[in-house]
Design a protein around this nucleic acid. Structure first.
Lengths: 246, 246
DNA sequence: AGCGCGGTGTGGTCTGACCACAGGCTACAC
DNA sequence: GTGTAGCCTGTGGTCAGACCACACCGCGCT
């Protein structure tokens, strides 16, 4: 199986993965320097860099120049960024349909709030609470509002405690962020819509705190589908007329 | 925001993403040759290669050496591979807990079969049917059985028609494949377990065809949790939110 | 004792070179 | 005229070397 690996960069990827699985590398550890890695594996430094670039985009490592304890490539295992890049690019390349992304979001987020509502243990929703308060306490631009909206939905996923679902939610959200923004620009009345969205947020949180799982699920469902229906997402033309700055 | 991009490879990534979003690149199209891309963007060929490597791992492009129409980098937008690599590595690096992966799988797969069962339109389950028949018609090794088992579960996701869910399922499955294999080796009686799994598969399919959404969801739930409980891989049996302290 | 400055090791990038490969094209043989 | 063999060209894959920017670390000066 591992007799011949025609691609040198894949050998590097495999070596790092093996080191992770077998415990030789753990979060927080430093990878060997690129030049050392190249010499150890018998490949060129370019191939090592290609593999490290993949690991970086996938959210496994963080690289920093310079010297000292914080420099070099460090295992971080932060899946959010990689998931976002993957889903955003797949949507851009039409590998993922926007409707499928929205549908998956409905599925995941509905299950999240239902589980939060029916959970027996103490669940910390103070983060979500604070975000809602911040949204309501001042007048925000559309971009600021959407950013906080993203944070609110993500905070629910984080409260659920499942890292996989949280990262996936972050990716899904990021993939359709451009569409959400484009849609907001075409709304009849942004103040009216944002006010409604805030009320719906409160409703979702209330249902969760009251332990009403089905009500919370329905509220989330209506919240998400309502916005995308209102912004005519499916037929939105998102072509930006801004010239490429270069 | 996009004032300065210190990293050259990111500029390449952004350029490709922009071309995709604005329609200058579509699935099936060729990317410019690496040397041309490098010259156009004003970066070195190494940086272009790093970006292309990322796109390849993410499942956006396919590269081939040689000449002619099939050579070069071609947009393919096949998300399965990228999702699998991401989740497998995140599990290896402890960014994803195995229990969370299993829980997410339960959530997605349960919803898939419930939706299949309650679907009104004509749904093609012949692929799943054929896989089950193949599993039952001969004695398989553990590896062969697990491979077909994966195909069965994936065929259900594909029947659902949601590309995002299908790719995510493939990634989740791939992430814990190693654990499933290791667990199979430690079973008391593999023939007994495999026979039970096959019966459960039939039960799931029957419930779907009978339109019994809740029964199908419960059958999938029991099927997955049963196997992982039996192999002592995880204690994730109930849907309680795990109170991760961090 | 305090401070400044160069050494050193790291990632980031570019350049140039060579190889393997696949297809197309030309020139030769029949 | 036809068929085929071999060269040609363009592509990705890889390597080696060089240089830069950067951040720490320690020596030496004040």
């Amino acid at each position: 199986m591992t007799a011949i690996i025609p691609r040198a960069w894949q050998a590097v990827l495999d070596a790092v993965e093996r080191d992770l699985i077998e415990g030789r590398l753990s979060p927080g550890d430093h990878l060997p320097p690129e030049r050392t890695l190249a010499a150890d594996l018998g490949v060129g430094r370019s191939s090592v860099r290609e593999a490290l670039r993949v690991l970086e985009v996938l959210g496994l490592i963080r690289t920093a120049v310079g010297s000292g304890p914080s420099a070099g490539a460090i295992i971080v295992a932060r899946p959010g960024g990689g998931m976002s890049a993957l889903m955003r690019l797949q949507v851009a390349a039409q590998g993922f349909a926007v409707a499928d992304v929205v549908e998956t979001r409905l599925l995941l987020e509905g299950s999240i709030v239902a589980e939060l509502a029916s959970g027996t243990g103490v669940i910390d929703l103070s983060a979500a609470e604070q975000i809602l308060t911040a949204m309501e306490s001042q007048t925000l631009t559309e971009a600021e509002f959407l950013a906080l909206d993203t944070q609110f939905h993500l905070s629910l996923a984080e409260a659920n405690g499942n890292q996989v679902i949280t990262a996936t939610m972050a990716g899904l959200r990021s993939a359709i962020e451009g569409y959400a923004r484009a849609g907001a620009a075409g709304l009849a009345s942004w103040p009216a819509t944002s006010a409604r969205l805030m009320l719906e947020h409160r409703g979702i949180l209330t249902a969760i705190l009251a332990g009403q799982a089905d009500a919370a699920r329905l509220a989330v469902h209506a919240h998400i589908t309502g916005y995308y229906a209102e912004t005519h997402l499916t037929s939105a033309s998102s072509t930006t007329a801004s010239p490429t700055t270069r």
